[in-house]
Design a protein around this nucleic acid. Sequence first.
DNA 1: GATGAATGAGATTTCATTCAT
DNA 2: CATGAATGAAATCTCATTCAT
Lengths: 194, 194, 194, 194
Amino acid sequence: MARNVERDALARERQRNNIMENARELFALRGLRGVRIEDIAKAVGITSANVYHYFSSKENLLMEVIVHSQLVFGEALQKLSEGSGSPWEKLVSLGTPNKNRKSYVVLLHLNIALSDALPKELRQQYKSNAINNLKVLSSIVAEGQRQGQIIAGDPLQLAARYIVDLTGFNVYSSTNLYEGLHFRFEDIIAHLRP
Amino acid sequence: MARNVERDALARERQRNNIMENARELFALRGLRGVRIEDIAKAVGITSANVYHYFSSKENLLMEVIVHSQLVFGEALQKLSEGSGSPWEKLVSLGTPNKNRKSYVVLLHLNIALSDALPKELRQQYKSNAINNLKVLSSIVAEGQRQGQIIAGDPLQLAARYIVDLTGFNVYSSTNLYEGLHFRFEDIIAHLRP
Amino acid sequence: MARNVERDALARERQRNNIMENARELFALRGLRGVRIEDIAKAVGITSANVYHYFSSKENLLMEVIVHSQLVFGEALQKLSEGSGSPWEKLVSLGTPNKNRKSYVVLLHLNIALSDALPKELRQQYKSNAINNLKVLSSIVAEGQRQGQIIAGDPLQLAARYIVDLTGFNVYSSTNLYEGLHFRFEDIIAHLRP
Amino acid sequence: MARNVERDALARERQRNNIMENARELFALRGLRGVRIEDIAKAVGITSANVYHYFSSKENLLMEVIVHSQLVFGEALQKLSEGSGSPWEKLVSLGTPNKNRKSYVVLLHLNIALSDALPKELRQQYKSNAINNLKVLSSIVAEGQRQGQIIAGDPLQLAARYIVDLTGFNVYSSTNLYEGLHFRFEDIIAHLRP
DNA sequence: GATGAATGAGATTTCATTCAT
DNA sequence: CATGAATGAAATCTCATTCAT
């Protein structure tokens, strides 16, 4: 019995994540307001009504997606920071496309979309999380500097600069406007090397 | 009888542009679904119904805004290209915030938001216009190379790289996530200098 | 000066008729409510606004069209009744397609449409005009009976019966549903011959 | 889980028919533009919004009503054709007012009103269905001829002639213009008797 | 949990009508 | 007269959300 309860809770959590991931992708592609509950439901393969078994409202789903995305990103960042590999490799890997790359695009979009139309509170929380993430990033940068892989300068400022590059690279890559003209992320951030 | 056909046509065109410009700002920040026709109408100072005197639908308005924005950007670019001033100054000025900067952000947003859900035809047209614009940009780059202001390399590739930077800078600036950490565009593209 | 006034009045009257005729045709084809002022204006080759120089409202235009149509039909009927030609020929000619046939189709449609959604007053007036017209028709029938061209019976009832045939024939002809299966009106009303 | 798919499908179909039948009556009397979705919804006893759960647009609803009406008429005709009773009785019953009579009037109206402004495709389909129905009718006529109840002649042509009469009779009856002057359908088609 | 039906609130769109030129 | 612009009122349509099954 207890087993079933646990199993149910697990299944529920899995479905919640499933929904959030689909929602995140859609929010990323079409903007926070450009997505209908039904779009998300369809992507997941369930009905709109069923979404409400997992999230109390669209607003709530949106918030959870934002927070969750940031959390996931933050965790990945932390893990990356603590993991093995040289700082430079870490920085490169963050921007290099792979199966997880989409998440960053999403974050990106959310950033953008956030500039308007979102509860102050959430926006504030989002901002402070972002800054925390930036600090983790800056620690990688600092370590890179120590190892002579990164140019000198305020690590936080350099981390922000790195974000500019990451952003530009991701948007450029995902819009895919100029066919034939591609970049490797490591070239984009090459100017950070000494 | 008392009508002046030319004047009418001009007034109409002016009002269309007026609406498009207001719509652009709003679409840029909130996306198609995040903007009500009434929002646009209010921004212009007319009635919702009157918007339909100029555009057949919200969807159509968006399309026209996209094309129009690109056109305006292209013209500005062309004018800049032909104008006086050093190539480097031209490149810097394009990214430096001023009353027109928003337009570029918009272009950006539209690019992104609409990578999905855009009529193939328009997307194709958009792409080809974008490439034309890129060519103009590359001519500025080439001139810069001739004058020793820009590093060597394929001008088109460098122009694309410039777009990456411009994009990153614009998004970073407009999201305004990390208060206190700002950049000047000329620093962002400094790596293009010899 | 007086000349000009007259001429103006005449021109005005002509334009009014022009509008009414176009309106009648459209009302006939699409129903009383299926026509927008702009449809009528377009058919005439003027603007919607200009229609209001001739008719105070759509409602008013509709009324005038109805009354006018009936009037025209009544006059034609009267003239036919008083004209030369045998009664049978007269009855045949009324239903036989020619450049004026459309009017009858219109009348027809109006009849139908009238069954709903029209001011009581107008409907009443329309009905009484219709009955007057029926009486004129019945006088032709009666004359036909005197001349041995029409079967015996109450002329009014026979006239009504004639209307049934005329209606059926006109609708059948104008819908043009069964290609290849056509009728001549005189065959439709052949049963009225002795 | 607690859902019964078959039952759901059936209920849906029933509700769709319910809406279509109510819509048909209204469209018949007032045409597409003369009927608001809310009128239909009210007649059915549901909300306007709910109508869109079953039909994608008012236009679409009209189309479906047209097709459906024809289908229903065709089925009734077929059943009548195969049923017991003499051919003559069958022909008479089709035109004799009863709870279903309105449907035919509707068909009529739609025919007329839509001769204009109807998608070519639908119009074509409508025509071919109409001809099929006419053939069924002609089989009744032919049987009537065999039994000596109908005059000689091409059954199809006679069936078409019957339609003229039916049309005229229905329109005449439903407009109700000449009070006191009524007909029985069997008298209208008496000329088809030998 | 999952679904289809149903809804209220709100956004888009239409249209008869007015008005300044 | 004639027109294009503008509008208010109303209709169409969308969508997040609830509910019975």
